[in-house]
Design a protein around this nucleic acid. Sequence first.
DNA 1: ACCGGTCCTTGCTATATGTCAATGTAGCCG
DNA 2: CGGCTACATTGACATATAGCAAGGACCGGT
Lengths: 225, 225
Amino acid sequence: MCRHCETRALSVCSPLEGEAFYGLQRLNHPVTFPARAVLFNQDSPARHVYTIVHGVVRLYKLLPDGRRQIVGFALPGDFLGLALADGYGFCADAVTAVSACRFSRDHFAEFADQYPTVLRRLHEMATHELALAQQQMVLLGRRDAEEKIASFLLALQQRWGRIHGKTSVTIDLPMGRQDIADFLGLTIETVSRTLNRMARDRLLVIVPDGVRVLDAAKLDKLASA
Amino acid sequence: MCRHCETRALSVCSPLEGEAFYGLQRLNHPVTFPARAVLFNQDSPARHVYTIVHGVVRLYKLLPDGRRQIVGFALPGDFLGLALADGYGFCADAVTAVSACRFSRDHFAEFADQYPTVLRRLHEMATHELALAQQQMVLLGRRDAEEKIASFLLALQQRWGRIHGKTSVTIDLPMGRQDIADFLGLTIETVSRTLNRMARDRLLVIVPDGVRVLDAAKLDKLASA
DNA sequence: ACCGGTCCTTGCTATATGTCAATGTAGCCG
DNA sequence: CGGCTACATTGACATATAGCAAGGACCGGT
């Protein structure tokens, strides 16, 4: 039940109480997806909106010739369908097994119109996403491979930290190298080489499905340089 | 006066009528900036929000070592300060002479809370910006110089088209080559070479402060390829 | 335990774009 | 008119990253 949901503090529903809270809960259809399942794609009409509860979703755009740009990874608490528009504008599929709260887009939009506090929260989340997107534009346009990887790792570390309530030196990387490459505008080979060079230089250790940070200071320097 | 404003259809105020319209007009402080003037920068607190009426503003982020990424060009009708947050998150300065509607952020936020239709419109604009930002991420991460330039030119052509009510084969480029480079994640030399190669190949003609499109079909193909 | 598949790593080479430097062009002001 | 300044172009060269290909590690199924 929503009442005890561990990701509530992070999601759209965080500011809701009483009537509004139960109203939204009534609209909720909990769903789960196995790894690799498609949540929706680029051109399909946006019938639903989602809040991720567990797992990781990759959001990406495809060019006609198959090149892919991952525009974001959705983690627990993240909302998919912020635009409340007719199309999503990108594809989404599950990197790991995923559980989510699903809402009909129409019902959700109606609900948002009824409770301005929800709309306000939605706008807050949208502008936060926008700020992240702009940060990513700097990364994609103006940073080299090493800086990209360092920024990516530290950003993920922070996001996991907010989700779990504590920061860990071990950073979970549930997505594969190809996903990281397609997020950072690199090739899989460059990602692999750069990570392994960082490991050789004792900045970090590569562990199954993640890395462990050894030299946070040097990594920070690379990320913000 | 707002009543006859030519950019009204494009801006936040488009859905406003009667009471709300006059309420917002009362909050408006018209301002002008000469070319190169700074509207605000990265770290300064966000005291105001703006709607651009005339001219072009560049929005950018700076890295500590001076590298610059332009995250967008604001054209007539565009809104600066969508986040209604304490900081802008980027710098803004005038490319050309600019006139704008300026509002106190606090007053504007208060106004938005009072009129949900404004908040809704703001959210709409924010998610539109987000979609553009994601499109730009694809461009920055996965396209080559030629594709970047072609996309940029056509996107600008469309934006001017919506502003002027008619599409023109002459695309105005009020920003310099360095600005284009910093927007597309290239160097000024690559922008110059690519544009001149396109001119040599009869895709376009370079004119003062702009280009004239000769082969729209080939340009389209490059832009979406 | 073995097999097959998927993902990751690593070396070699190719290339698009960056870097540096010189030259050209145009507007502006005295 | 001339010369200053900012901006744009062009060429020669350097390099980070891409592309290709071979091998290695790991995992899940039988």
